[in-house]
Design a protein around this nucleic acid. Sequence first.
DNA 1: ATGCCTGCCGTTAACGTTATCGTCAAGAAA
DNA 2: TTTCTTGACGATAACGTTAACGGCAGGCAT
Lengths: 353, 353
Amino acid sequence: MPRAARRKKEATIVDIARRLRVSAMTVSRALTGSSEVSEKTRKRVLRCAKELGYRPNRWARSLVTQRSSILGVVVPDIAHSYFAEITRGIEEVADKAGYKLLLCHSCLDPRKEEAEIETLLGTRVEGLLVASEQPLSSPEVFLKLQETRIPFVLIDRFFPGRELPSVRVDDVAVGRLATECLIELGHRRIAHIRGPRLSPAALRYRGYLAALRKHGIPVNSEWIVSGSFDIESGRQAMLKLLDKQPRPTAVFAANDPMGIGAVYACRDRGLAVPGDVSIVGAGNIEGAHHPNPFLTTVDWPRAELGRAAVTVLLAILANPEHQHTRVEIFTPRLLSRQSTAQAAQRGGKGASA
Amino acid sequence: MPRAARRKKEATIVDIARRLRVSAMTVSRALTGSSEVSEKTRKRVLRCAKELGYRPNRWARSLVTQRSSILGVVVPDIAHSYFAEITRGIEEVADKAGYKLLLCHSCLDPRKEEAEIETLLGTRVEGLLVASEQPLSSPEVFLKLQETRIPFVLIDRFFPGRELPSVRVDDVAVGRLATECLIELGHRRIAHIRGPRLSPAALRYRGYLAALRKHGIPVNSEWIVSGSFDIESGRQAMLKLLDKQPRPTAVFAANDPMGIGAVYACRDRGLAVPGDVSIVGAGNIEGAHHPNPFLTTVDWPRAELGRAAVTVLLAILANPEHQHTRVEIFTPRLLSRQSTAQAAQRGGKGASA
DNA sequence: ATGCCTGCCGTTAACGTTATCGTCAAGAAA
DNA sequence: TTTCTTGACGATAACGTTAACGGCAGGCAT
């Protein structure tokens, strides 16, 4: 039901042309800064445009130039600081390059994500940035997307076996850093709360395994449980871990919310963090450090991730034929804080429960 | 330098029309769901559209319908969870109503804000949502905006004396709640860290004054200092307050980051929170409660604020002539946590670190 | 038969720009 | 002089879509 909105008509290029008794083309040239106009007429046009409150209509312009100067951004949830910071980085670079952002939510729903991408294509965005830690749409969606020849860059998305243009952190290193930090503190009974399969968390898991193996620590599958990236699932997973015999003395949670959940679970059971159990998260979410930096975690530059993604996208845009798959990988670093401590001495104050 | 992007041409309505040997108009009707087509041709059109991978061009459609189904959103910084949550609420309602969001950053820069608004108008957004806790553009910008007859709703913005369409929290109540909470705990020497003038913080300040007056507590201007809404300025302000004689026993900071800064300042001076000093913030930012709810604060529903803003905007949009200034005001509530305690009384809360 | 709906579809003209080519005078070059 | 160049501008046709109107069958009542 397209109801025609009746509002004051915006001034057009033709209005200016009529007023100045020149052609619309001349006005267009003057406004876009073409060299084919005399300085005198340009000044007249600019003055008249200002008087009439003229604002170039980007749709009309885009229709003929085939360029929208708009990029589409799809995130699971902008209210999550992780994606908000990425988006911030995206906006920064995009703005400098003269692009605007059209923001969409995938809501962790694969169908919604696909629908949003479809809408964005209809809006003829010049490029697409799609972020999500979770395994959403299958690779097919993006392979199909590749055929439209509209450039896109994935953020934090990992498809085993398929390399698509993307920007992400070295997730294996995330898992390795977190685990090695615990090993160096003397821990040997190190548990892991996994994230969803097919997500970057799978790589963090690999990093966890690699670190253990490297230090000759046997893997105990009893100490590996799954969560779904939120606080509550972290708590549940940790409760399960605390029931195991023997009980792990340290835990690497695949992301910070689950790490926080693990802290809660310890409190529920009357265990001290880091006195009885050391906990490491991943992601350095805001909540983990104010007003008291608490959760030890692995950090990587979120805004930088966003900036890099746009940079890659702009590069593809500037050179469409040069479209070999680019993947940029960031190196994470450990933030040692207060949820980790030296492992208890054998036979000391440790394992009582 | 509009460089024509050479990519595979998208299928148009005309392509479908030619293939089916009907007119473009018929195709358009079939696709937009008009009743003026037979069911048979509609099916043929839809099938052909799918085959060709047809995607309606929103620019062209908008050009003729004069509707873009796009709303402009201007926030200071999407990376701040406060605005991220508001944006989240906006997106939710906008999405349900079939609107997309064009996201812009004002970066706390009045000129940038005005420029962004100008760009958005050029993009012919159907409406505008402008948020900021800070005093940015002068009211003139919005009075001018009102003349364009493009609906807009301000979020959290307060212009003394001028009522513009807006949605905000009852900031006087924020100040009152925070201050009365401290009074009820027995505090009498209550300081205030103010935010920038002309911002909602000015109203919180009024609430602070009102609460003191109501309880017959004299106002000590020594105990009122200014900050600029960030953690560091809160710390500086608190350091000044701790040097006063007599020293306040409680502080109401006009927002959470300053409250956190105040906590830091106390630690710098070896004072316990809440043992020696009670601190209340405002805004309930994420960082204040994980993994340990700490800062007592005044909360209001951010996402709800965003949702309400769009709802107001949509109402204006649906009824342009009915454009009397609508202002919606939310009621805040106190979240009592661990940075506040009974006055002059060593409560048993030990520090965990 | 005539007139009049009604359902379906086509034609034309927008919407506001810019690309492309054409024009036309003034000046330079032959 | 003539011819060519150049600078400044105009006319026309796109871009992809929909609004507004017109046409034309076929069915029904007169």
